[in-house]
């Protein structure tokens, strides 16, 4: 494990570079194939509406995968992530158009822990709503 960020260089409040991740219907089909999650709420709007959703929604695990990229890109080595947890609070709604949706992810160091580790709190938004709650990672820095 070779994180490129030094523990001594970060403080509580240090912001990680924010990123925006686009998601279209094509993205969801590709993620369904790669992850093996073929639940039709992620690609079939007729089905999604029938079960009470406003439209097709992104896989929660897709959103979780995007959100941690802000941390892994910052840390350099993805293996620096020693813990990662989220609560799925709101769905990312993905319309059937060229635009799709966006997931905006920001993160900051919330606590410095023992053993060169820090806790990073992550915020993920889509269409003005917080889509993840309690989204936190513990990261071991250099």
């Amino acid at each position: 494990m070779t994180a490129k960020i030094a523990y001594d260089e970060v403080e509580v409040g240090t912001e990680l570079p924010a990123q925006t991740f686009p998601v279209t219907r094509a993205t969801l089909v590709q993620y369904a194939g790669a992850s093996g999650d073929f639940n039709p709420i992620h690609w079939n709007e007729k089905f999604a509406v029938e079960v009470g959703l406003p439209d097709v929604i992104a896989h929660g695990m897709f959103t979780m995968a995007e959100a941690i990229r802000v941390v892994t890109d910052w840390a350099g080595d993805p293996a620096a992530v020693v813990e990662y947890g989220v609560r799925f609070t709101k769905p990312v709604i993905v319309p059937n158009d060229d635009q799709g949706a966006e997931i905006q992810v920001s993160a900051k160091v919330a606590a410095k822990l023992d053993d060169q580790q820090v806790r990073v709190d992550i915020t993920a938004m889509s269409a003005g709503q917080k889509v993840l709650g309690m989204s936190r990672a513990v990261v071991r820095l250099a």
């Binding site: 590709q30 790669a34 995968a65 890109d73 080595d77 293996a79």
Partner: peptide, 23 residues
């Protein structure tokens, strides 16, 4: 396949040499 599906180009996922450099 998974890394491509999430759009993540981190070489540690696809390039053995890059992964080895990280240990």
């Amino acid at each position: 396949e998974f890394a491509e599906a999430i759009g993540d180009a981190n070489p540690a996922y696809t390039d053995q040499e890059a992964a080895k450099e990280l240990g």
